[in-house]
């Protein structure tokens, strides 16, 4: 049973990074192209565009945190 637990934990830590990464990428694709569109016309929007572009990165940061917690906090308890 312990082994199954380990597999589940490892897989979910992998999944949390991959899925949140994909989600962030998808969101950033749209925001990024919109930001580029806006700032080609108005240079002063450059900074706003850049900041907006990193907003969805929160998702992947949470994903990474969850995965780290799973690997380094939850996993040792199972082993």
């Amino acid at each position: 049973m312990a082994e199954l637990g380990v597999i589940v934990v490892v897989l979910s830590s992998v999944a949390s990074v991959i899925l949140t990464g994909l989600a962030a990428a998808w969101a950033e694709k749209h925001i990024g192209s919109a930001a580029i569109g806006a700032m080609t016309e108005k240079e002063e929007l450059f900074s706003k565009g850049l900041v907006l572009t990193v907003i969805p990165e929160t998702i992947v940061i949470f994903g990474l945190t969850v995965s780290l917690v799973l690997l380094f906090v939850v996993l040792p308890q199972l082993l």
Binding site: H30, A35, G37, T40
Partner: peptide, 14 residues
């Protein structure tokens, strides 16, 4: 569209 329309909006604001 996300690129096109934000760019066009920016152009429009000019």
């Amino acid at each position: 569209y996300s690129y096109l329309n934000t760019r066009v909006r920016a152009m429009e604001s000019n």
